[in-house]
Design a protein around this nucleic acid. Structure first.
Lengths: 285, 285
DNA sequence: ATCACTTACGGGTGACGTAAAAATC
DNA sequence: GATTTTTACGTCACCCGTAAGTGAT
């Protein structure tokens, strides 16, 4: 069979167009490539090049071979990636999320269901999440909408409702609810790790200003020392409690509610069955 | 990247289940495989085997890697086959046919259109023809029916009408036509290289006997010396003329007419454009 | 003279075999 | 004791680099 190094050299020659250019790209000498290309022709038993006296050109055979070689090399790289991803998935459960809310609440449950596994979570855009799920970087991803893809298994995993957290003397502090529009133009303290909420509030309040803080600790520190409004959700209130110095006013817009869904490859569904059953018990009923 | 020999050894270990068995299959020693498998684990950076004291078993990672390796090797073999086929197609034009009729007439035309090329023709079953076309063994195939396959380009190339060739004193010699059923049960001289006609006449006249002769010369020799009926077609009469000792009676059944169509891969259509245009001029108008 | 490729020759990596040991059945 | 895997060591193939040569720009 054909050695891999020959495939690599062939693709380089194909891409560079000349032996000497390819030799530089590969950090090899020209004679090496001459020999390798001759060896390839020997293996195929077929001319791959048109040779004028001081020029070689891939002919039709050679171009086909080079295209195939490129594909094979890509497939090899894919093999390495897939095997490594599979191995990681056996000791690590990586969850990619569009927003942090659901996992704040569910992480302990997931850890208890898979005690030996390292649970890792990452906030990413939807596009990155799909990419990562397909490459095996994530075993599961959590999106804020439902979709039907035959290759994916989908399970609801809760919702989250955004609130304004304002000082007690703020003009909306006594209201039972408030719209984005009503608060547009104000300045807000905001954590930088809020996932898709960032996109939502900027879209709904294009004239507002957002003062980003890295980390919840730093944010709460600042909240205590400031009279600026910030954000909370029903989830964060349940988990971290209320600050008596603040009034929490639910946001009336539909965009202030996110519904979350946890996806994994259908082929992995049985592997994480216990998790999905737990989600069903918690949110379906 | 991963050397090809490692992929080969991995697939062998996967298929054989044990290092020693694989070493026999590959004509290598066991230590070689031990080292290679360790090297693979090193490259992947991942355990591929569960090792008990004197046993190794591919684990989940290893099985995935082996499956991928098998695919890659198949793809490499495919690459070699495709390149060789492409090379052959540049100097040889191989036509696979279900029946010999059309090419008897058209071979000279094809040769004159592609003067540098070797023209090769083969009689095969439809299944073999498709297989060969896809593997690049045949550049074109001729079938006796129309089909719509988006990947194939189809051009009519004539028809052929079967006749009974009987001695002048035969009971049907004066008829203007005759059915298969009417002649069922008789004995016929027949060339063995008649392609699909063989299937047709046996199906239409299940009680007839067919005395096969290799080669048209041998057949005509026998025809002169015998009073047995044989077959002719409008094509063979045009090409080889009539034997005055015989009456030629057209067969009235629909099955006695074959309509031929020449197929090639759509990607090759422009390569053989001149040929297809010649067919159009001859048969379409 | 420079560039692009080929041919010829020498060196070092590494793939393989042999030998031997360890462990299980 | 037979089988299977692993470790250690020596060898040879072969992949690459250097040097020199040819022809074209």
């Amino acid at each position: 069979m054909i050695d891999t190094y020959l495939l690599e050299q062939l693709t380089a020659v194909y891409e560079c167009g000349t032996l000497s250019a390819a030799s530089e790209k590969l950090h090899l000498t020209q004679p090496t490539l001459t020999r390798s290309m001759q060896k390839l022709e020997d293996i195929f038993g077929v001319k791959l090049f048109e040779r004028t006296k001081n020029r070689v050109h891939l002919n039709e055979n050679g171009r086909l071979a080079a295209e195939c070689a490129r594909q094979i090399l890509m497939q090899e790289q894919d093999m390495v990636n897939r095997v490594r991803a599979l191995d990681r998935s056996s000791r690590m459960l990586a969850v990619g999320m569009i927003s942090p809310g659901p996992m704040m609440e569910l992480n302990p449950l997931l850890s208890s269901l898979y005690p030996g596994m390292t649970i890792a979570t990452e906030l990413r855009t939807e596009e990155e999440l799909f990419e990562g799920l397909n490459q095996g970087i994530y075993q599961m991803i959590i999106l804020n909408h439902k979709l039907d893809d035959d290759g994916l298994s989908c399970h609801p995993c809760g919702s989250e409702h955004l609130l304004f957290a304002v000082p007690l003397e703020h003009r909306i502090a006594d209201k039972s609810e408030c719209s984005f529009k009503d608060m547009d133009g104000e300045s807000f303290l905001m954590a930088s790790e809020v996932g898709y909420w960032d996109h939502i509030v900027r879209q709904q309040m294009p004239n507002a200003h957002f003062l980003l803080q890295n980390g919840l600790e730093a944010l709460h520190e600042l909240v205590r020392a400031s009279s600026l409004p910030h954000f909370a959700t029903d989830l964060t209130l349940r988990l971290y409690g209320r600050n008596p110095q603040r009034a929490y006013v639910p946001i009336s817009d539909n965009a202030a509610v996110e519904h979350f869904f946890c996806y994994c490859h259908r082929s992995d569904e049985k592997r994480y069955l216990a998790w999905f059953q737990a989600l069903e018990r918690r949110f379906q009923s």
